[in-house]
Design a protein around this nucleic acid. Structure first.
Lengths: 235, 235
DNA sequence: CTGGTCAAGCTGCCATACAAGAATTTCTCG
DNA sequence: CGAGAAATTCTTGTATGGCAGCTTGACCAG
């Protein structure tokens, strides 16, 4: 799970570059709009530019990075509208997944409870990276536990986008609340009430979305402006 | 839409290789397990091996082709279990999408009706390729029409897999029936009954899945066996 | 005629080299 | 001192060449 982040190695098993980058995004260590140069990655992972480029191409196909022709590769920076669409997509998909569950193996609930314990630990210890990763990973774990092998990949990419969005638009949603909501969903699952679990999931994702603020986007000076304590009108 | 298939050009605008291949899969012209050599594609599209390889890498990230190390690139050939999981995924996602619709623009229904007309034309004229393409494209068009821009891409790839699966496991589902079911779904949408539309969608996908036969898989001699009129027991 | 071994060829894999465009910097002229 | 143009640098895009591993076919022994 999260251990993969700590076991980042200097050697480069080719397609593991993708995983390291995605994990870093999930952990909130790479923000939206970050430049990912081919050469930089190549030297960082001590591989040739070719394999770095291939990793970027894979990430592009997964909707996580974008290439601007002859300008560079950048982590996606979704507009507010695109951000909303990602949340809508997640609501639809995750609700549909829960409603489509036929039988629920008991070990699924146990696994989710264990996951929630880890979430609480990360929150308590103030480990922001683990917190970000685990809060997103809950959803991946959920669909993983349901036995389908095609949905987790889809959801992982969507979750990565969500983390980027949350950082971009400064989600005010409290981590503790998210964790509580995860627990409520798990409780509903344990009780076998899939309908309620789906409803809780929809409102959970909706809550996170509702916490977004439109303010931050399309103002590249925000961080500087804040650092200099300047208001938006003041030049 | 489908016109892109006929306007296949010899020049190669780079990433359009993907589209041509996916379209060919959607039209049923490329079967599961087909070899896609780097050199072959490169000469076919008159580009270098590099860009052909990049297209294959993209398709691999989308779950449409697989690479067997130093053996070659092949269109995926899902096992029966994987096939079932793809159908489950589509059921969950498409149901969730329909249930998550808030407001339905009337032009959506019109667009879908026009699409169904095309489906019937293709069926009537015996154009198998257009038929295959359009029957799958209905689902993509549906979510496209609902205004979300992240879901269509996901669904297109899933649909491509479905087409491959249907050909692999010789779906016995009649095209006319599928078309009728599309119409029923559209009717439910037109009536504003999203709940029924979702139910119809689930049963529609379930019907296609139910038409699969387990027989064909893991027997590479099937086509030869059939050609030689040999029964499965006869050697 | 059958079974096993070896060699040649084909394939993907990776690195490198070169080309072309974009951005930035610098130089020059007003 | 400032504005515009030119040049430099940095980036991706594309092609090509060599390497390593698998597959296949031939060859040889039993």
């Amino acid at each position: 799970m999260y251990g993969s982040l700590t076991s980042m190695q200097n050697s480069a098993p080719a397609n593991s570059i993708d995983r390291v980058i995605v994990d870093a995004i999930l952990a909130g260590r790479i923000a939206a709009g970050t430049r990912l140069g081919e050469q930089s990655l190549a030297t960082l992972f001590s591989v040739s530019r070719t394999v770095a480029r291939e990793a970027l191409i894979r990430l592009e196909a997964r909707g996580i990075v974008q290439v601007s022709a002859r300008r560079g590769w950048f982590v996606i920076k979704p507009s507010f509208e695109e951000a909303q669409e990602v949340f809508q997509a997640r609501q639809a998909i995750e609700m549909g997944i829960l409603l489509a569950v036929h039988r629920l193996r008991p070990e699924v609930v146990e696994k989710l409870r264990a996951h929630i314990v880890h979430e609480r630990e990360a929150i308590a210890s103030g480990d922001l990276e683990a917190r970000s990763f685990l809060l997103g990973d809950f959803h991946v774990c959920l669909v993983e536990a349901l036995g389908n092998r095609v949905l987790p990949d889809i959801l992982r990419d969507l979750t990565a986008r969500t983390v980027l969005i949350s950082a971009l638009y400064q989600s005010s949603h409290d981590a503790t609340v998210s964790c509580d909501e995860h627990e409520a969903i798990t409780d509903a699952l344990a009780a076998g009430d899939l309908r309620q679990a789906a409803d809780l999931m929809v409102s959970h994702i909706g809550n996170v979305e509702a916490g977004l603020t439109r303010a931050k986007d399309d103002d590249p000076l925000t961080s500087l402006r804040q650092a200099l304590k300047l208001s938006k009108t003041g030049e």
